[in-house]
């Protein structure tokens, strides 16, 4: 960085764009199309639905009490948390070696090509990509054909789809690129000579990895975790497509209440999720760099 011009020498007349007004349209959009609707939802979550399915403005905590008193709902919520954690763990475990290989052993030019290859799936329909897994895991799917072909099973198995495992696999598939991009960005800044130096000084490779590399890429790892964990809390499409009856997550319940016009219950459930998301974001706000993940390639 060049030394800044001392404040006394900076031009007094500031350009129009440095005043606050350019923020106005964005502020209005955020206020009217985001904060206001969310406030209405908060209000709904504290009101009640009468027998005619109308929303009545009687203030009450019943919707939240209903959520926590019903075993199925709490279990589904816990299951969603466990699912999100399991996908996050798998995402980091698969993406870290991948990104490490890319940064350490692949030349600049090929790095960009492989990165692009990781991003390209985003350019095709999310719905069709998730749906395509049915053609792989389903009863007439490729996996069954393959296993029957090599004689491992005699008849098609229904065990591969419409359960928690298939939801886990497809969620991993959908969110892997986020983890890979966040970790790549972090590793790219790391000076690998440090690893060599550590080993020269007598550290075992695993010690060098744990004590030199990991602490320096921690922000990237946290970003990756957030980018996989948080969206899964609101996932209802993948469970709908490959989860069947068994694979439902908390957001599926919200959609069901929405279809059943139980708006107040729905709003309360939504804010249980939203509260969780906001807490995660506030705790990790220092690490969260959205632009690092999305503005690559």
């Amino acid at each position: 960085m060049v030394d800044p011009i001392p404040a006394s020498h900076q031009p007094r007349a500031r350009s129009n764009l440095t005043r606050g007004w350019p923020f106005l349209p964005a502020g209005v959009v955020l206020l009217v199309l985001f904060l206001l609707p969310m406030t209405v939802m908060v209000a709904f979550s504290l009101w009640r639905t009468n027998s005619d399915l109308d929303v009545v403005p009687d203030w009450t905590l019943d919707n939240y009490i209903y959520f926590f008193s019903e075993g199925t709902y709490v279990r589904t919520f816990l299951k969603t948390l466990i699912m999100a954690a399991a996908v996050t763990a798998a995402g980091i475990a698969t993406a870290l070696p991948f990104a490490y290989f890319l940064v350490r052993y692949v030349g600049q030019r090929w790095q960009r090509i492989v990165l692009l290859a990781v991003i390209v799936p985003f350019w095709t329909s999310y719905l069709l990509r998730a749906y395509a897994w049915q053609a792989i895991l389903g009863e007439k799917g490729a996996l069954n054909q393959f296993l029957m072909g090599i004689g491992l099973i005699d008849e098609p198995s229904r065990l591969f789809v419409y359960n928690d495992l298939s939801v886990w696999l497809v969620l991993l598939y959908v969110y892997f690129p986020f983890a890979a991009l966040a970790l790549y960005t972090a590793l790219e800044k790391f000076d690998f000579n440090q690893l060599n130096a550590a080993q020269d000084l007598g550290a075992r490779p695993d010690q060098a990895f744990r004590r030199i590399l990991l602490p320096q890429i921690r922000p990237g790892v946290i970003t990756a975790c957030i980018f996989v964990f948080v969206p899964i809390l609101g996932e209802f499409l993948t469970p709908t497509l490959v989860g069947g009856a068994q694979g439902a997550l908390i957001a599926n319940l919200i959609i069901n209440f929405f279809r059943g016009l139980q708006y107040t219950t729905m709003a309360a459930f939504s804010f249980v999720i939203a509260g969780f998301v906001i807490v995660v974001l506030v705790i990790f706000r220092r690490y969260l760099r959205v632009e690092d993940v999305v503005a690559r390639g």
């Binding site: 209405v40 939802m41 609101g234 939504s270 939203a274 998301v277 974001l281």
Partner: peptide
Amino acid sequence: TLPIMLPGALIGIALLI
């Protein structure tokens, strides 16, 4: 960051209402 990280279902339903 909130509109990016909050589940789309939540934003969609809030807007619809």
